[in-house]
Each structure stands twice: as C-alpha cells, then as structure tokens.
Simulated assay, not measured.
Amino acid sequence: MQGQGPAPFTVRARGEIDLAAARHLRRKLARALVEHREVVLDLSEVTFMDCAGLGALVQGRNLADRTGLRLVLHGIAHPVARLLRLTGLTCRLATAL
C-alpha cells in the first residue's frame, strides 16, 4: 500500500517499573526513538510503576516531541492508568493507537 511508512517499533515493558527498571526503560526508549520515527511502548504487562517509571515516560515523550518523532503508549495496564490519572498526566501521556 502506497503512502504508508514503516511499521512502528515496539518496546515492551513488563513487571515492576521502579527506580532500577526505569533507568533501563529510559535507555531503551531513547535508543528506539533515535532509530525509529514511531515507537509504541506496550505497557500491558506492567504490574507496578512508581514515580521513576513515570519520569521515564515523561522523558520519552519529551524526547519524541523535541525531535518530531512519535511515542505511543499502548495497552496501559491498570497500575499505570491509575498513576497517570492521579498525577494528571493522562492527556499528556496516554495515547492510544
């Protein structure tokens, strides 16, 4: 089909996204956003996320916005959705395909 670009690259996050895991997620997102125009972050298997994980999402979104790329959150699990609601970041971060 003409006019369609390459398929988005998917980064999958699983389990608990705490301070240690958030550092890894930040690096994965930054690398993916350097190499791909559109990155989908699949959060469907995330069981816990703290403020460090939230910071990784915000940093990824900011990088995508600054560089004209696209970061899409997909499969937002309940713990992440609740954190986004509580912090008021749902509109800023919660993007569906």
Results as ranks from 00 to 15, higher is better:
R70S: 04
R31A: 14
S44P: 04
L63T: 13
V11W: 00
R12G: 13
A22M: 05
R82H: 08
R70H: 07
A77K: 10
E35R: 15
R23L: 07
V46R: 11
G75K: 00
D42V: 10
A77H: 04
T47M: 06
Q59R: 12
L86W: 03
G3A: 02
R12V: 12
V40I: 12
T10L: 10
L57M: 10
Q4A: 04
G5C: 02
P79W: 01
T10F: 09
V34E: 11
H74L: 11
I76Y: 09
G53Q: 06
T10V: 13
C91M: 11
G60I: 07
R85H: 11
A30T: 14
R31Y: 15
L43R: 07
L84G: 01
L29I: 08
L33E: 12
L89F: 05
G55W: 02
A64V: 13
A20Q: 13
A77S: 15
H24P: 00
G68W: 00
V39R: 04
A64F: 06
L73F: 10
A52T: 06
L29G: 03
R66C: 01
H36I: 02
M1C: 08
H24L: 15
E38D: 06
E38I: 13
V72N: 05
A52I: 04
D42P: 11
T87V: 04
A77L: 07
L86F: 07
V46Q: 05
G75W: 08
L19D: 14
L43C: 11
P8D: 00
F9A: 08
D65L: 14
V72I: 13
R23A: 06
I76V: 10
P8T: 00
L86R: 02
L25S: 06
A52H: 09
A56L: 07
A22R: 01
R31C: 12
H24K: 11
T87A: 03
G75Y: 10
P79C: 09
L73H: 05
A96D: 15
M1R: 07
G55R: 02
L73N: 02
L43D: 00
G3N: 01
G5V: 05
L25G: 06
R31D: 15
K28I: 09
P8C: 01
L69N: 11
N62K: 14
L57R: 01
L73Y: 09
C91H: 14
R27M: 01
R12S: 13
V11L: 03
L93R: 10
T95H: 04
R14Q: 12
E16P: 09
G75H: 05
V40L: 12
R92I: 14
V34M: 10
L57T: 13
C91Q: 14
H24R: 13
V58N: 08
A64K: 09
G60Q: 10
V39P: 06
T90L: 10
P8Y: 00
R61N: 12
R12C: 12
T47S: 15
D18A: 08
D65H: 12
A52R: 05
G75D: 13
R61A: 14
D42K: 14
